[in-house]
Computed example of a mutant assay.
Amino acid sequence: MTIHADPLSAAGLPDLRPVLVELTGRGLPLLLATVSGAHLYGFPSRDSDVDLRGVHLLPLADLIGLREGEETQTRMWDREGLELDLVTHDLLKFCRLMLRRNGYVLEQLLSPLVVHTSDVHGELAALAPGVITRGHAHHYRGFAATQWRLYEKNGELKPLLYTFRALLTGIHLMRGGGVEAHLPTLLGHVTAPAYLPELIEAKAVAEHGPATGMGIAHVARDVETLHAVLDEAQAASRLPDESSAQDALHDLVVRTRVAA
């Protein structure tokens, strides 16, 4: 991920740490919280909400007692006109998602837009390279296909940018470049259609604006080309076929739960 001197400010975000302090005080035990979504991808709109994603730790009683704790917790609220959406997974569930070749959780874990962190966050990030495999190409291929179908249905700019972002992230990852979700940065590493910077600028105006002036047949060819590039990158990738971090993640979950 590309790290800026002041990542939140560079992404056009205020200091969100006080928000997390409030939530922690209400009983949400956070291990990490980062910004995902359009702000992480490098094309937020003036009216974009803030997608906060993270990891919490369920107490032991919620795992072994009759009252089961929430593996996934969701909070949505408005703070001085800024819409925030927080989704966190229990540490065990998050680690299982990491092992399921889920690029989305890796992007959250390695996001440079850090709002709350801990030693466990650092350990998870250090283990991330050990879960990256050639199979992660399937995640980005599938996500791009889903967003493309949405674009075909509504013609909006947002799913079109999400399509290109997913394909470029997958290609970059398969080529050994690591997890990079920031589309403007990706344009400096992967050959892409020349009109993407203009689309990014247009997206800044409105979250749900149409992709005006784009011929769908021409764009479809560009998307097909990038799918082919992703296929080739996966076939030639030197990434392993299987994760090597399962034992280490298991140990981290056990140590963290026992310590708590």
Score class of each variant (00 low, 15 high):
236 A>E: 12
161 L>C: 08
163 T>R: 01
144 A>D: 03
125 A>D: 01
165 R>Q: 15
147 Q>Y: 03
154 N>R: 15
206 A>R: 14
222 D>A: 14
140 Y>S: 10
186 L>H: 09
143 F>V: 13
136 H>G: 03
123 E>Q: 15
222 D>C: 10
155 G>I: 00
146 T>N: 09
144 A>P: 01
191 T>G: 02
184 P>R: 00
131 V>M: 05
141 R>D: 12
238 R>E: 14
151 Y>R: 00
157 L>Y: 00
217 A>Q: 15
206 A>Y: 11
200 I>Y: 01
167 L>K: 05
157 L>E: 02
144 A>H: 01
205 V>Y: 02
189 H>D: 07
186 L>T: 13
142 G>S: 13
217 A>T: 15
141 R>V: 11
173 L>S: 10
239 L>C: 14
206 A>S: 15
147 Q>D: 01
237 S>P: 07
196 L>W: 06
232 E>D: 13
129 P>E: 02
124 L>I: 03
166 A>R: 06
126 A>D: 14
161 L>P: 12
125 A>Q: 06
215 G>E: 12
190 V>D: 04
158 K>W: 08
122 G>K: 11
240 P>Y: 04
126 A>W: 04
145 A>E: 15
166 A>L: 04
192 A>Y: 10
234 Q>P: 02
160 L>M: 08
211 A>V: 00
176 G>C: 11
156 E>P: 05
227 H>Q: 13
224 E>L: 15
152 E>M: 13
207 E>M: 13
231 D>P: 12
177 G>W: 08
170 G>P: 02
232 E>H: 14
126 A>L: 06
155 G>F: 04
